Simulated assay, not measured.
Amino acid sequence: MPPMAFIESWSLASFLAPLHLLSYSALLGTELYQTFIVTKVCYQELPRSAFTTLQKRIFPLYFRGQSLLLLLTAATIPPYGPFTLQASKGNWIPFVIAGVTALLNLTVYGPRTRKIMIDRIHQETRDGTKSTGIDVELSDDMRAFNRSFSRNHAMSIHLNLISIGAMAWWGWKLASRLDIQSL
C-alpha cells in the first residue's frame, strides 16, 4: 500500500474505536472485579483490621481509576470522540449517570465512608470495645458512628452499582452496533 493511500484510509473512527473498546473493557472489568471479587474475598479471608486497612487504601484508588477510565471511555467514542455523545440521548445518558455516581463516590461518599471507618477505629480504642460486638454495650458515640457508616457505605455501594449498570447499558448499546456478518 503506498504511503498516501495509508494516510487517506486512516480516519479518526479507526483510531478511536480500538481505544474506546480497550478503555470501556478496562472500566467495566475493573468495576466488576473490584466490586464482586476483591471486596468479597478480602472480607471473607482477612482479619477485620487488615480488611479495614486495605479498604481505606484501595477504594480511593478505585474511585479515581473509575473516574479516569470513564473520562477516557467517553473521550474515545467513535467516530468523533465526545462529540458523538451529542448525536442522541441514548449515547450520553449512560455516561452522565455513571459520571455523576462515580463523582459522588470520588468526592463525597468514598471519603466520608473512609473517615467514619477511621473514626470508628479510634472510638473502639477510646471505648475499649469493638464497634460490632454482639454482646457489648456500645457507647452513644459508637452507635452514632455505626449509623453514619451504614448510611454512607450503603450509599457508596448503591452508587457504584448504578455506575456498573450504566456501563453495562453502554456495553449493550455498543455490542448492538457490531456488524457480526463481517467478523
Rank of each mutant, 00 (worst) to 15 (best):
I93G: 02
P82M: 12
V96Y: 03
S131N: 11
F95E: 10
Y109W: 13
D127T: 12
R126G: 01
S131G: 14
L70W: 06
P78R: 03
P78T: 08
L103E: 08
L68W: 13
R126I: 14
A98L: 10
D119N: 06
Y109K: 02
A87I: 09
T73A: 09
F95A: 10
N91P: 00
S88W: 02
I118E: 15
Q66M: 10
R112G: 06
T76P: 05
R112Y: 13
K89I: 05
P82H: 08
A75E: 05
I118S: 12
G65M: 06
R114E: 10
Q123K: 05
G65W: 02
T101W: 09
I121D: 12
G65S: 11
F83L: 13
I97A: 13
L69F: 12
K115L: 07
A75Q: 04
S88H: 12
G128V: 07
P94Y: 09
L85M: 13
K89C: 12
V100F: 03
P111D: 05
T113R: 06
G81K: 06
A102C: 10
D127C: 13
I93W: 06
T125D: 13
D127M: 11
T113W: 04
L70C: 09
T132H: 07
K89G: 15
S131C: 09
G128H: 06
L68M: 14
Q86L: 15
T132S: 08
S67G: 14
A102D: 02
R126M: 09
Y80L: 12
T73W: 01
D119A: 13
G90Y: 05
P79G: 00
P94H: 11
I93A: 11
H122G: 09
P94W: 10
V96W: 03
T113C: 09
P111V: 05
G90L: 06
G128Y: 05
I116K: 01
M117F: 02
T84H: 02
F95S: 10
P94R: 11
I93N: 03
T107L: 15
Y109G: 02
T132P: 00
T73H: 02
T73D: 04
L106D: 06
G65N: 11
W92N: 03
P78Y: 04
S131F: 07
P79R: 00
L106S: 05
I121P: 00
R114L: 07
A102L: 01
V100S: 04
V100L: 13
G81L: 05
N105A: 03
N105F: 02
K130M: 13
P82D: 01
I121R: 10
S67V: 14
K89E: 10
S67R: 15
L71Q: 01
G99V: 09
R114V: 05
R120N: 10
G110D: 07
T76V: 08
I118H: 05
T76G: 08
I77D: 00
A75T: 10
V108F: 07
G65I: 03
Q123F: 04
H122Q: 13
P94S: 12
V108C: 13
T129M: 05
T132K: 09
K115H: 08
G90V: 05
G90S: 11
L72R: 03
P79W: 00
S131V: 08
R120D: 10
I121A: 14
I116R: 01
D119H: 00
L104T: 02
G128E: 08
G65Y: 02
L104G: 04
F83K: 04
Q86I: 14
P111A: 04
L68K: 06
R126E: 14
M117S: 14
L70I: 08
G110E: 07
L70T: 09
G81W: 06
T73R: 02
